[in-house]
């Protein structure tokens, strides 16, 4: 009964946000799609010329990278104010706190679904050879989503207690973007590739993107994702269980 109610609340809150956006403008969240399409077209062609790389392989790489980055960065930046923003619910209704990271994830998954077609259109237009490996992107995305769930809970918890975390995260996200393979493939970097793999977001991007570009994800990327999921979930749940009763006082 309670889990049914939670499911209802999570889907309602995520969908009402999307619905509100559809209502306010004719194109609704498709503005997102258009923005992504414009951004990747512009950046893709200029950069492929600047870097002397063939557009047919570079533009789909960049498009997939940008779409995934929007998804990851959207969740991470918003999770700093996750509980604070829902203070009026937390302080007045006795609901499980886990509904908040879940609705955040679901809302961004819906946005992601609006953006994903851009990649496929770009891939078809530029004749990117796709093969059956592409299906591996789905379990990859599932793993990334679970990883983002614990990250959202953890960052939300810390963000509720430390209000300046919001600004800290906003500062380091662009930095992390440059040391993750959004704009390039890992193998484009002869020297800094090792540094890039220290960024967890690089693993999130690669596990979804490399199947889309025709190759199964490297084994160590899958292993890192699984390891992060296990350790991250464990640590977050321990911290969450010891502090969950304090959150209502913090927000």
């Amino acid at each position: 009964m309670q889990s049914l109610q939670c499911f209802r609340i999570v889907t309602f809150m995520a969908l009402s946000d999307v619905r509100a956006r559809y209502k306010r403008s004719v194109l609704g969240p498709l503005w997102l799609t258009l923005g992504t399409a414009g951004g990747s077209a512009g950046l893709g062609f200029i950069w492929s010329e600047l870097l002397h790389i063939e557009a047919a392989t570079f533009v789909p790489t960049l498009t997939a990278g940008l779409i995934l980055w929007q998804f990851i960065a959207g969740i991470i930046s918003e999770s700093t104010v996750l509980f604070n923003r829902q203070a009026s619910i937390i302080r007045n209704l006795n609901l499980p706190l886990a509904i908040h990271p879940m609705q955040l994830l679901l809302r961004h998954l819906i946005n992601f679904a609006h953006n994903a077609p851009v990649f496929f259109i770009v891939a078809i237009l530029l004749g990117l050879p796709m093969n059956t490996n592409a299906w591996l992107a789905l379990p990859g995305l599932f793993l990334v989503a679970l990883n983002l769930l614990w990250l959202a809970l953890l960052i939300g918890l810390l963000g509720a207690r430390f209000r300046d975390l919001e600004y800290l995260i906003a500062t380091i996200m662009p930095l992390l973007m440059f040391i993750s393979p959004v704009f390039y493939r890992p193998n484009y970097l002869p020297f800094s590739e090792q540094i890039m793999w220290f960024n967890p977001f690089s693993h999130f991007i690669e596990i979804v993107r490399s199947p889309l570009l025709g190759n199964p994800p490297p084994v160590f990327v899958v292993e890192t994702n699984l390891l992060m999921l296990a350790c991250g979930t464990l640590v977050t749940l321990c911290l969450f269980n010891s502090k969950r009763n304090r959150i209502a006082f913090w927000v």
């Binding site: 209802r8 609340i9 309602f12 009402s16 509100a20 009026s88 302080r91 007045n92 209704l93 609901l95």
Partner: peptide, 25 residues
């Protein structure tokens, strides 16, 4: 509960939409 003014309401939504929102919550 009726504890805090605007609890669980979304100020941008209409009264009708907020009835549904609060009901679900």
């Amino acid at each position: 509960t009726v504890l805090e003014l605007g609890a669980g309401m979304d100020p941008e939504l209409s009264g009708y939409e907020n009835i549904i929102r609060m009901g679900v919550l």
